[in-house]
Design a protein around this nucleic acid. Structure first.
Length: 310
DNA sequence: AATCCAAGCAACCGCTCCAAG
DNA sequence: ACTTGGAGCGGTTGCTTGGAT
């Protein structure tokens, strides 16, 4: 192991058991280990992970215990696929914050930074590789803005209309009444004292999908939406047509995308046909390919003439 | 049925930051 | 001011699984 300085060496030793005769376990956790950890934390609480590992009788590093608890065993961890709303939020937050996974995870209750990071790497970076571009390059960001986000919105709209049918159950077998039953987007980041309260936000007519997070508010609580929507190339009429339902009961927002007009993405500067030309030649090549983009329905490209009714 | 391979994800690693002593 | 340990972050690895051949 290459150590950058003495402190790192000390730290690395500190991450493991003091007693070198105890052989530390690595790799996947067993059910027995999980139960030990859960039981210990239920009785004694979390924190001080190194001593916790020892006291719980686990032959694991404190780090390993912490990771296992936070990413897998903690009761409020949400399992299963990311909802469309969550994916949309990840796109948005990543465009703001980059690879700040833990910060992004704070805005997706029940989701872990590791899960979001894996999602991003397996979906976005994979597609970037297929396009032979850097996953942080402008081209991929353009693809996200001009194709994947509209596609997400389109699918959300499809789902919302399906959910209005009592016979169809979408996304994790939620009750299929209306869109307010989609996975709620909890108000994510703790509000500071100078931010707007939830009822104020609810009243704000210009609510858009950008106000999914509290950072869309300026220091005095005014929405910073037009600027942000512009940055994301989301046509204003779409922003204006996405409404939010606020649930006072659990202080969360439910996105109502039933009224937005997806065809707006086909207008002027965001048209797919334009998107496919010039600097986006690499995309158009894949748009017409039947061999790529098939790992997830969302991530499939369709042929241009199928796209958005163009 | 057996093998191969790629995708997805859990877990690990190196590092930094911060608070306490 | 310095040391130390705890906590957390982001990048990476490698195991498991499922589909293709």
């Amino acid at each position: 192991m290459i150590m950058s300085d003495n402190r790192t060496l000390i730290k690395s030793i500190g991450d493991s058991y003091e007693d070198p005769s105890i052989e530390l376990r690595r790799g996947p956790w067993t059910l027995e280990e999980d139960n030990l950890l859960i039981h210990y934390i239920n009785c004694n609480g979390e924190g001080r992970w190194n001593s916790l590992a020892k006291c719980a009788g686990l032959k694991r590093t404190g780090k390993s215990c912490r990771l296992r608890w936070l990413n897998y065993l903690k009761p409020d961890i949400k399992r299963g696929d990311l909802t469309l709303q969550e994916q949309l939020l990840i796109f948005e937050l990543h465009s703001k914050w980059g690879n700040r996974w833990s910060k992004i995870a704070e805005c997706l209750p029940g989701r872990t930074d590791n899960e979001i990071k894996n999602y991003w790497r397996t979906r976005v970076q994979k597609q970037a590789r297929q396009l032979n571009v850097d996953s942080n390059s402008n081209k991929v960001m353009e693809a996200i803005r001009r194709f994947w986000i509209p596609r997400l919105l389109e699918k959300m709209k499809q789902n919302s209309s399906l959910m209005s049918s009592p016979s169809v159950d979408i996304q994790n077998s939620k009750p299929s009444s209306l869109l307010t039953n989609t996975a709620p987007l909890k108000s994510p980041c703790p509000k500071s004292s100078n931010q707007v309260n939830t009822s104020d936000l609810h009243r704000e007519k210009s609510s858009t999908w950008s106000n999914l997070n509290w950072d869309s508010l300026d220091s005095v609580g005014n929405l910073k939406l037009p600027e942000y929507a512009e940055n994301l190339c989301i046509p204003a009429q779409i922003c204006d047509n996405i409404a939010y339902e606020h649930s006072a009961q659990d202080d969360c927002y439910n996105m109502d995308i039933t009224s937005y007009e997806i065809s707006a993405f086909g207008s002027k500067d965001t048209s797919m046909s334009e998107f496919q030309v010039a600097e986006f030649d690499c995309f158009s090549e894949h748009l017409t390919s039947s061999t790529s983009w098939n790992t997830d329905e969302l991530w499939e490209f369709r042929k241009p003439d199928q796209e958005l009714g163009v």
